[in-house]
Design a protein around this nucleic acid. Structure first.
Lengths: 211, 211
DNA sequence: TTTATCTTTGACCAGCTGGTTAAACCTTAA
DNA sequence: TTAAGGTTTAACCAGCTGGTCAAAGATAAA
């Protein structure tokens, strides 16, 4: 309970890690408690000893994965650097994270859409309105120059993040396309190249907008 | 069997429609045969009479939804019009389809990622390499002008489609952001506005690229 | 060593899930 | 009217799923 033995933490961490893997791969509905127990190499009853139910275990895992997804985005967009640098840094950092966690986007989008109550967790983690206000204050001059009105900021933000996130969600479709192409570039190479392509694309679009 | 009575088709169609709804909403793993039967207002055993198993029923539904997603994209990008017009028409048509089927993107991406064998169906429906070749032949002049090399075409294509598809996949997250904003625009208004935003954005980026 | 507390386990269970089956029902053609 | 074949149903089933529980095992303090 209060006393934290070595073994306690080891076991709980092993369960948590196994649960993360299984939930991320299969999603909540297709995930099986038995499989989590097997991967953690423990008895199934132990799962319920540490995390009362499948739902509670899932929620614990979900919160951590949600933060893994959004904390970096938030911190980058809150930084006090130029908008151009921010875009470049965002793609660099976020694509790196997603290369390490390629299942993250589809997992999060899917669970959120199937269980709207999870959205509450996002409110607290993403803090969108805060981010939006900071961005608009910091970059009012640049955004005006680019002809982005405050009402259009969501359009721009969605565009920016979709260019990084969408390819991971569509990863299997893309892999198929690349095979068919006889393209030797791996998916990861594609995403490495995308860091520059995406930032150049966004900057170019902004600099040449109809005003 | 061969004789097609009225009632046969009506029943089979009712089952198919109900199955489409349930699979699209819940996904394969969380979908329940009983719920499909209830929505079709028939006995559960009838599902197995018309479609032998859950898997077979799912595959039938999946193929139709896959075509709903991709046929329009394919036909637009195969048309003999300028690249700019093609981009505009693509967003107009595809966003219209997705507004009518908002769950389609997440459903397809998710099922494909959880069941790689379904990719075969995409090969036949999407015909990516054919599309890519046609695009590159038709627009070699324009693409050269924009400084898009053949190897970069996938980057451009993924960018274009992600701007239309991603917002639907992230629909619930976006709805939350809009509420928090106190924004009265509905999600559909956002997507209507996105038709112009996206095409202008892509065209602007192309016209101002580093070469 | 003893004792109290925390961990871990095997065995078990109720309820759900996809799927089957035999019988009833309906339609149609002879 | 009747026989045949397709359609629909209620009842049923085996296997899986999340979850429980009593007992055994480990740990550390007294």
């Amino acid at each position: 309970m209060v006393k934290t033995k070595n073994t306690d933490l080891q076991t709980q961490e092993r369960i948590f890690k196994a649960a993360t893997e299984v939930f991320e791969e299969k999603g909540f509905a297709a995930a099986r408690m038995q499989e989590i127990a097997d991967r953690a190499e423990i008895n199934k009853a132990l799962l319920h000893y540490y995390f009362r139910s499948k739902e509670l275990l899932f929620e614990a895992v979900f919160q951590v994965l949600l933060k893994k997804m959004f904390e970096k985005i938030l911190s980058v967009f809150m930084m006090d650097i130029s908008f151009e640098k921010k875009i470049k840094l965002y793609y660099e950092e976020h694509i790196n994270i997603l290369i390490k966690n390629p299942n993250l986007p589809l997992f999060l989008l899917n669970e959120i859409s199937h269980n709207p109550e999870l959205v509450q967790g996002i409110r607290e983690t993403l803090r969108y309105s805060e981010m939006r206000d900071v961005i608009y204050k910091q970059h009012s001059r640049e955004l005006r120059k680019y002809g982005i009105k405050k009402g259009e900021l969501p359009q721009l933000m969605v565009t920016v993040v979709s260019m990084a996130i969408f390819p991971f969600a569509a990863r299997n479709v893309m892999k198929m396309m690349m095979e068919q192409l006889g393209d030797n570039k791996s998916f990861n190479n594609f995403m490495q190249a995308r860091k520059d392509f995406a930032s150049d694309f966004v900057i170019a679009a902004l600099k040449n907008r109809k005003k």
